[in-house]
Amino acid sequence: MLALGKLWSQKSSRFLCSLAIPDVVPSCSYYDAQINKAGREGDFATVHRLLNKRCHDGFFNTNNTFKFISKNNLSILLDALLETIGRLDSGFPRKCSYDCLISRLSKMHCISEAMRVAETMAKSEGHGPNNVTFHPIINALTKKEEFEAAWRVIDVMKSIGIAPDLTSYNFMLTGYCFAGNVASAAGVVAKMEEEELGADTRTYDALVLGACRAGKLDAALALLRRMLDDGVSPLYCTHAHIIGAFLRYNYYEQAIEFVRSYAGRDTKLDAENFGILATRLISRSKFEEAKELVKEMSERRLRIGPPLKAFYESHVKSDGLR
């Protein structure tokens, strides 16, 4: 009887264990959710603990880490959050949290508050700001075409011993090119050359964008060729700038020729280029040209997205069955 009771006890124990709720597996999203919950409740002791623990567990902060901050509660929470971050373990946990907070504030376009965080970092030891710290601020300002404010940020960087890097100047260059301010864009390029920063794919992309917006398509094509000659791989959007410029001036044949001239090198790029051009031709009621492109996409076995797939089924495939 005792043996049966012991056996039953062992079986029931195993059964109950199988029903136990498993431990939560930590992840970036898990930590973000817990930090935001604690932040909304004003529990900064828990925020402090979680910010430290996630870094030690190997889960970096993300764009969602400080999502509990909004323009409505910023004036109430910022002081407490700065004090909390200032007490984090020195080194990466503290630096990463400061940078993440600046990124969140920049996205909200709370520039003065973001600069206040950067200045707090500069006064601290062992986790000072660097170029990465200021990138979100410069990016936010140039997107709003607040160029004078962006240059003041760069001046602040220089005043605390941070030499602006290529990415910082790329933000300025892209902003000016998007705004169509060719003279100022040329000034940025001159600064980059003077400081021997070189050029990367973002630099070329900005220059191609500027040439397209200024209507200088020959210059845009020359820049694209130079990228390839220099061994710099263009972004997909770099090709999209040129396609868009051709269509803006109703150069449909040239746009098609451009897309075909770069076909066969990168399957994903081909799908992107053919897809963008075909979609825009359809929107301009250039159905015959679009049919030829979508047919070619099928022949090249390129991925055709749902909207173009429907066009293919009704205009290309159906024609072949007649």
Rank of each mutant, 00 (worst) to 15 (best):
L173N: 11
G180N: 12
L173C: 11
I162A: 09
D155V: 01
I160D: 02
G161T: 08
I162F: 09
A149S: 13
A149G: 00
F178C: 13
F171V: 01
M172K: 02
G175I: 07
F171R: 00
E146Q: 14
S159C: 01
F178P: 00
I160G: 03
Y176A: 02
S168G: 12
A179N: 10
F178M: 13
V156C: 06
D165K: 09
F171H: 15
R152D: 13
E146C: 13
K158S: 07
G180W: 12
W151Q: 08
K158Y: 01
C177G: 05
A150D: 04
M157V: 06
G161L: 11
T167Y: 14
S159P: 01
F147C: 10
C177E: 04
A179M: 07
T167A: 15
G175K: 10
F147N: 09
A163F: 09
S168L: 07
S159K: 00
F171L: 01
F178Y: 14
F147R: 07
R152A: 10
P164Q: 08
F171Q: 06
A150M: 06
V153F: 04
A163I: 11
T174N: 15
P164I: 05
Y169T: 01
F147A: 10
A179P: 02
F171T: 01
R152C: 07
F147S: 09
D165R: 10
F178I: 11
V153W: 02
I154M: 04
A149D: 12
D165P: 12
G180P: 11
N170E: 06
W151P: 00
G161W: 08
F171P: 03
L173P: 12
L173A: 09
G175P: 12
V153R: 03
I160S: 03
A150R: 01
I162W: 08
G161E: 10
A149T: 13
S168F: 03
F178K: 15
S159A: 06
Y169R: 04
C177I: 05
V156N: 05
R152Y: 00
I154A: 00
Y169F: 15
W151C: 05
D155N: 10
D155A: 12
I160Y: 04
R152S: 12
G161D: 11
Y169S: 02
T167D: 14
A179V: 05
S168V: 08
R152P: 00
I154V: 14
M172I: 08
N170F: 03
N170S: 07
Y169W: 07
F178A: 14
F171K: 02
G180M: 10
M157K: 06
F178T: 14
A179E: 11
G175S: 11
G175Y: 08
E148K: 09
E148I: 07
T174F: 14
A179D: 13
A179Y: 04
M172H: 04
F178S: 15
Y169N: 04
Y169K: 03
Y169C: 06
I160E: 02
M157S: 06
V156W: 03
